[in-house]
């Protein structure tokens, strides 16, 4: 007699795009360990727009850095787009950051020496994308984020909002499945911030999985799911 496997019946059709299990990050220094992220576990399905919220010092940026492979966890497991990030070595982590996630920083972190075109092209160059294809892709992305005419400018010649748009274009150039944004509107006025959020929303509409850190409840309202953190722990997960 065949047994009915109830678990297989309820298993999602697709695996989670982002998953964390027992994730902990300790920072050492000053004679005491700081537990920035403590035993965090969650799963996000593909194509979701999630916000990590919480007060300053709650560990939300550290969590994002762990998910993006910029920091290594002290313990726990991370799975992003089918990759066990926690198990990757230095070189594999770099490849993961290059191809599978796109990072958007609060302070934009564009390379000041390079033109906007070159800043956006940089991940493609690092990935060895063919020149002609890369040029087309960069110009198309700049068109998408609305700064096509700023391609030959240097970062300091652009407004904050324009710089953040360039950073978004850079995050997309290798067509990653997951976009990680750390307070992407933190350095922008409300109009520029709303425009950036609009842009992120459009990306999410096109199927990108988006994980955004913010401490602003209004901005978090743009996301479909909120992960609330306090003192390094994930306290609630809520659909919005």
């Amino acid at each position: 007699m065949l047994k009915y496997d109830i678990d297989s019946e309820i298993e999602p059709l697709t695996a989670p795009m982002v998953a964390a299990h027992g994730l902990t990050k300790l920072f050492s220094g000053g004679g005491a360990d700081l537990r920035a992220v403590s035993d965090v576990s969650f799963e996000l399905e593909p194509g979701i727009f999630a916000a990590i919220t919480g007060p300053s010092g709650s560990g939300k940026s550290t969590l994002l850095h762990l998910l993006g492979g910029i920091e290594k966890p002290s313990s726990g497991e991370i799975d992003v787009a089918g990759t066990a990030v926690h198990a990757l070595g230095e070189s594999a982590l770099a490849k993961f950051r290059l191809m599978q996630v796109g990072f958007i920083f609060q302070a934009f972190h564009l390379i000041p020496n390079l033109t906007i075109f070159n800043n956006v092209a940089m991940p493609g160059l690092l990935a060895g994308v063919a020149s002609a294809a890369l040029r087309d892709r960069v110009l198309r992305l700049l068109e998408t984020v609305g700064i096509r005419d700023k391609a030959d400018r240097l970062p300091h010649e652009l407004s904050g909002g324009q710089q953040q748009r360039a950073a978004i274009a850079r995050a997309l150039v290798n067509d990653p499945q997951v976009i990680l944004a750390d307070e992407p509107t933190g350095n922008l006025d409300s109009a520029a911030g709303d425009a950036v959020l609009q842009l992120l929303g459009e990306l999410n509409d096109r199927g990108k999985t988006l994980l955004m850190v913010t401490h602003d409840a209004r901005i978090a309202g743009w996301a479909g799911k909120q992960l609330r953190m306090r003192d390094g722990r994930l306290v609630t997960t809520a659909e919005t």
Binding site: P112, T115, F117, N118, L125, L126, S131, L154
Partner: peptide, 30 residues
């Protein structure tokens, strides 16, 4: 920050490997 030099614009897609292009751009920017 002093504004970086326009010379940094020499890093363009299509010429040389990433090493020389990035290296020269780092220097020419300042």
């Amino acid at each position: 920050r002093q504004p970086p030099s326009r010379l940094a614009g020499s890093l363009e897609v299509g010429r040389g490997g990433i090493g020389p292009r990035l290296g020269s751009s780092l220097l020419l920017g300042r």
